[in-house]
Design a binder for these strands. Structure first.
Lengths: 356, 356
DNA sequence: CTGTTAGCGCATTCAA
DNA sequence: TTGAATGCGCTAACAG
């Protein structure tokens, strides 16, 4: 079975839970009505005198009362909850720093408004069986998509049918209604800046290494890189290599095979730093001088790139800010009833290193 | 304000949601009773004839029905949901690969049983205001703690009062009842293996670099490292450096200051690979040969350690498996009503590299 | 400022 | 094999 199997159920009759303290019990203990307790819990203090408020608060903490989200959710028909679905064929769907920064930014941003974030990684194949597709348990959904354009469009179609606010992260799809919004970084500009940077250094035989699986953001940066290179130098040669996965071993094997059969490039563009550094280390192990013989550039600029020497030239990603923005946009959507913008693009910038 | 402020609320009267399709409507459309629809949705097919089942399923998909978790949750008094709280003073609480692997393993493992995972990072200071402390929205809670022993114990006391299943990850506290369980990796053994490894190479002047904030797992590996070194060589010299945070710059500044004022060590133990590699790069930039002049060891062994050369000697962490195990243990707890074991320790192993 | 009524969507219980 | 009644905990709307 793949990393993400389909779902079974577990809870059964043998597992009744201890009864919880309810608003009614707090009310009884405090000698007030349930409504007054509710008002205190929800901070509607203008409806409660200071004296009763004190009493109620005391009973709440004495009895250890916590609001049952199911009850409130049922009553008010929303849950103060958002979810993020990361479509990834890999079980470690957070091991990429891009994803983990986005999730952290998102979670923090939502928390500030009292919203919860639930996280799930899932393969494209199992997307249809995911919890969010069959259960209504969040008010809004974030999705990071991967896979071919066709398949992504089908997923987006399914998401649209959910009839809930959807934010697509790092997607190139152009939304057409107020219920869906795309937030992404400017991968296109990033690719272009790298192309300019390398062209200025008179590089003209390029190898691009990207993962086999299609990530729209990666497509964008690669496409725009190629376009710009060809525009600047019609004679440039570009080879695109697909690494079966993003692991060091896979990248190095992929590159080694190419080098064995083709003329040596003078620049390598790894579609993210992980790929770029994997390639760079392989070149170094063959005694190739970086950047003198081959320039190397990457993408995303998270801290661990600094482990590798020479320091790689890369494009800095605003991943955490992307998550933060995504949080705010969703909250705003809840208030306003529709997304104010359906596409938000965050800037990236080039950070020259020692590999060019 | 710190990374995690306290929570406000956002949803208001202007944001009524579109009415959702309910079981009742599906029932009406299919010409059956709500109960029958419920039986179909929950897979209780023995109570439903094949014919009516077909009809109901068709209406479910035609009307795009999804079960409202609030309603179900209220009725059955559990939510098929777990939460993880990561106590971290840093806003990027997932940027450490240990955490991101744990969360991925946990999320995948819970998903397989139809459970949801909600994620929140929070500072120790704001812990008391966290969502889970005031709202009952999950059936079980995972916590990764940091901070001084005193403060952690206070947090554990608060958690215990929640009267819910709690799993503490990477904590050294010893639980005493069936409602709390600790799952951790064998940091103690890891520290000891590194000590053995370095002592065998006749190293005797050690610098340990650890983060300022207390992480119990880090305490464990550092303590056991020191104990073992002293046992093997009573004359060994050990200095412990606290880096204000885990960033490259902080580590390097901390180490530089120490080197300027103290005799040069012959081995450095970074409490995790990030710290170790930061230190190693700093030494290399000063022209110090690794491992000839100074040996370097780290801890955790995630893939990005391979960016740095020479390849660091480290202890491999089973972080993903820790998350997976934690998922299974919680599910089992839900079924059985109490944790079968209060403490589970996963093995680690030494991976010798080129830095010793 | 405080209390009462009613019903959100669902599944347990019992009756048919 | 199917249906009807009931109430889980909470809060909007209104009455006092």
């Amino acid at each position: 079975m793949s990393a993400h199997g389909h779902e079974g159920f577990v809870m059964n009759e043998t597992s009744k839970f201890k009864k919880r303290v309810t608003i009614k019990e707090v009310a009884a203990a405090a000698g007030v009505s349930p409504m007054t307790v509710s008002n205190v819990v929800n901070g509607r203090f203008k409806f409660v005198s200071d004296a009763t408020r004190k009493v109620v608060e005391k009973e709440i903490s004495r009895l250890n009362y916590r609001v049952q989200e199911s009850g409130r959710g049922l009553r008010v028909s929303h849950r103060r909850a958002a979810g993020i679905l990361i479509i990834d064929e890999t079980k470690s769907f957070l091991s990429d720093h891009f994803n983990s920064h986005v999730v952290a930014g998102l979670s923090n941003s939502l928390s500030l408004s009292g919203y919860t974030l639930t996280v799930q990684g899932i393969s494209l194949e199992h997307f249809g069986q995911s919890h969010v597709m069959h259960n209504l348990s969040v008010d809004g959904l974030y999705v990071i998509l991967s896979g071919s354009r066709d398949k992504r469009e089908k997923v987006i179609e399914d998401l649209r049918r959910l009839d809930q606010p959807i934010v697509l992260l790092q997607e190139t799809y152009r939304p057409i209604d107020g219920n869906i919004c795309v937030i992404r970084q400017d991968d296109q500009l990033g690719g272009q800046m790298l192309a300019d940077h390398l062209a200025a250094r008179r590089r003209e035989r390029f190898v691009i290494i990207k993962p086999q699986t299609d990530w729209p953001a990666i497509e964008a940066r690669v496409d725009s890189f190629c376009t710009q290179i060809r525009k600047l130098n019609p004679n440039a040669n570009i080879s695109i290599l697909n690494s079966p996965d993003e692991s060091f071993d896979a990248v190095q094997a992929t590159l080694a095979e190419h080098l064995a059969n083709s003329p040596r490039p003078d620049a390598i563009f790894g579609a993210n730093d992980r790929l770029a550094i994997g390639a760079m280390l392989m070149l170094q192990s063959q005694g190739i001088a970086i950047p003198d013989e081959i320039s190397v550039v990457g993408f995303n600029g998270f801290e661990s790139r600094r482990y590798a020497r020479p320091l790689i030239t890369t494009v800095i990603s605003p991943a955490y800010a992307l998550g933060e923005t995504a949080g705010k946009v969703m909250i705003d959507r809840f208030i306003k009833g529709s997304f104010e913008q359906n596409e938000i693009v965050l800037p990236v910038y080039l950070e020259p290193g020692e590999t060019t």
